[in-house]
Design a protein around this nucleic acid. Structure first.
Lengths: 152, 152
DNA sequence: GGTGAAAGCCCGTGCCT
DNA sequence: AGGCACGGGCTTTCACC
């Protein structure tokens, strides 16, 4: 965990809100000026705190109208199985999130696809690649909120 | 749903991979040149297909070490309750995602907090604001994959 | 719809305080 | 470490093909 002072924090808030802002604007917003802000951003980037710069695309407008949360239970816990499962998830672009969980359910995935048929294709492909004991899919009806912003 | 041709698609792939690339680089990558690419980006932005530009921050490095998926069942389905619940979610910055679901479970949230105690504080605040019938929290042990990129 | 050039702004650096 | 000023490069526009 990195040490971050108040100005760093403000810079991150700005960048996370709108990364297209100019250095001058950010500097003014955080109460400093160009050079020090630029040095801080550079340092945060080098430290890996600031990662890739991306744009948020409108999934619905682009025809990705189905979103599933997939709860997975497995009986297999050996290293080989886990590695194969991990690889399968990394390779499939429709998997937007994957977490290993504590407790009853072993994994949760967020899967974004064009429609229910595309989800079934994904599901069939996945279970043919790796053995899973139990799969529950939760279908999203409405995305109420979606952000990657951290509550700094 | 917007009509997108092959060049638009390539531009979106480039932008969602790395939005800091220069127009020249993007133009070369998609096999076109500056001005037409710029016009397409402008059009896509105006149409709302391209949204905010953000940076990905390293949550762990910044001390956000706990991530929960929260499954919520409710018995209340009237408009007033739903509005209050929605408002509560929008206002709480630790809620990174919220979806209304089809089926047994009514809502799923993704909640990012500093630690388990912070999650409990969030949970207590939420249930004091709105009545919910049943809440299950899934604790993430490991973020295997995380992307907002659509499989264009 | 693609090319080229021109204007202005912004990034990144180096120097000075 | 913060502020200033300069050069190169990039965005954005416009006129032409």
């Amino acid at each position: 965990m990195v040490r971050i002072d108040e100005i760093d924090r403000k810079i991150l808030v700005e960048l996370q809100t709108d990364a297209s802002r100019s250095l001058d604007e950010i500097a003014k917003a955080v109460g400093s000026s160009k050079t020090p802000v630029w040095n801080r951003i550079r340092k945060l980037r080098d430290a890996g705190v600031i990662g890739a710069q991306t744009v948020k695309l409108d999934a619905e407008a682009l025809g990705f109208e189905a979103c599933f949360f997939v709860l997975i239970r497995t009986s297999e816990h050996d290293a080989g199985w886990q590695q194969a499962f991990l690889k399968a998830l990394q390779e499939r672009p429709e998997v937007q999130e994957a977490h290993r969980l504590a407790g009853d359910i072993d994994y949760i995935l967020k899967v974004r696809v064009r429609n229910a048929r595309a989800y079934d294709a994904f599901y069939q492909a996945l279970i043919s690649e790796v053995r899973v004991h139990n799969v529950t899919a939760l279908l999203s009806m409405e995305e109420i909120k979606s952000t990657t912003a951290l509550p700094l």
